[in-house]
């Protein structure tokens, strides 16, 4: 680690703001996970951490390391990209599993969408 580089104040302010913003969004997501009443409502708040929370933290990391090493260090950007590919897969599967389990236990959820029905127009 190079001790000679002193980070400019604006950069510290920016990195701090991004970190706090990201963690606050993650906290709101967790609050939603605990507070909301219905399972399908609870599927929405975790997206806060995996989108804007991850973006803020990754941006902070990129800014900090790029100035520290005096060259662009972009690899933290892989985390949001990876998340945006993997999170939909698990969320989708979980939503289908929840629909399936609720239907078999007779709870009030929409019928299975079949072709020709529910077409609307």
């Amino acid at each position: 680690m190079n001790e000679a580089i002193v980070l400019p104040f604006w950069l510290e302010l920016l990195v701090s703001t991004l970190l706090l913003l990201g963690s606050l969004f993650a906290l709101i997501g967790a609050i939603g996970l605990v507070r909301l009443k219905d399972f399908f409502q609870r599927m929405h708040p975790p997206a806060l951490a995996s989108t804007i929370g991850a973006w803020c933290v990754a941006a902070a990391s990129i800014l900090y390391f790029s100035v520290l090493k005096q060259s662009p260090v972009l690899h933290a950007w892989l985390i949001p990209i990876l998340l945006s590919i993997t999170v939909p897969v698990t969320t989708l599967l979980l939503a289908r599993a929840a629909l399936f389990r609720k239907r078999t236990s007779g709870e009030h959820v929409p019928e299975e969408v079949s072709s020709g029905r529910d077409r609307g127009n």
Partner: peptide, 28 residues
């Protein structure tokens, strides 16, 4: 499309009809 709907908070892609004509979406 499923990636977009799931990444955007507030909508979750729930089910697609077998012939791909109807989509069931949960909106916050």
């Amino acid at each position: 499309l499923s990636m977009i709907t799931t990444v955007v908070p507030g909508t979750v892609w729930s089910e697609l009809a077998l012939d791909r004509s109807v989509l069931l979406l949960h909106v916050f």
